[in-house]
Amino acid sequence: MGTMVDITGLRKEFGSIVAVDGVSFTVGQGEVLGFLGPNGAGKSTTMKMITGFLTPTGGTAKICGYDILEQPLEAKKRIGYLPEGAPAYQDMTPSAFLTFIGEMRGLSGEDLRKRVSGTVEKVNLQSVLEQPIETLSKGFKRRLGLAQAILHDPEVLILDEPTDGLDPNQKHEVRTLIRTMAPEKAIILSTHILEEVQAVCTRAMIIAKGKVVTDGTPADLEGQSPTHNTIVLTVRSGDVYAMQAQLAKIDGVKKVEEMGQDGEFTQFRIFPDPGRWIIADVGQCAREQQWEVAELQVERGQLDEVFRNLTAPKQALT
């Protein structure tokens, strides 16, 4: 797993705004790194610096060993980039546009034709190839942006919100495409869809106010959720207090919360002591008490909860 993207101390100031504040990380071959973060966190700005569009105020990025500031052409050759909003020349057709991108990347003749047609198939653009880009729907524009990024089969892919505006089928296809390309490449993508991180990323990074706040596998992230490994138990309503007391008696249970009842059923959330695996004991308890169980499951943890905890503005202490 060679390092393909090496970022050190990246910083960008726009006047008095610090958009990116000392971001460092590396991405190796086979990794799919998901950038998460609230609006204005600095995800796009970071990507713009990695791809050589913006000059950093400080720090730099190395792409396959080539410094984007010192050897921009060599670095850019190895990058495929989908900018935010997937910009493209509106009066061209997708086929002319992709040919242009291919020629700019030094492809020509039969090779170019094959690359274009192969890429068009990968992102399902066949039906709109000769239609002016300005008349394409948002999803097709996004797919065209993706096509232009992967056309030259780059070693490093930087995708700013690649599935934004796609329908569920296309989202699925694009995620599958990203997964199939992943083993040979280093991929960085940004997204606001947390399931997307679980679906395609091998690693997730949350950025807030220009700084990296967590970096780990999606499972690590879930582990930070306060509800990680808690048990959700739904039973037919009875004496709620008695039930709660009964559950709290189980060995390894730290806390039991009643989450609500809807007349027929009552739901509890049971928090284990750290490192304890208590679902079997909870099940046992329910059987012994002859409760009618409607649902019993372990929660993996909510990514959106972790996301909110890490990035939402802290409530003022009163």
Partner: peptide, 14 residues
């Protein structure tokens, strides 16, 4: 205005 400049200048071109 269209943002295509970002795509253009991130191609391997001076």
């Amino acid at each position: 205005k269209e943002g295509t400049i970002e795509m253009l200048l991130t191609l391997p071109v001076t």
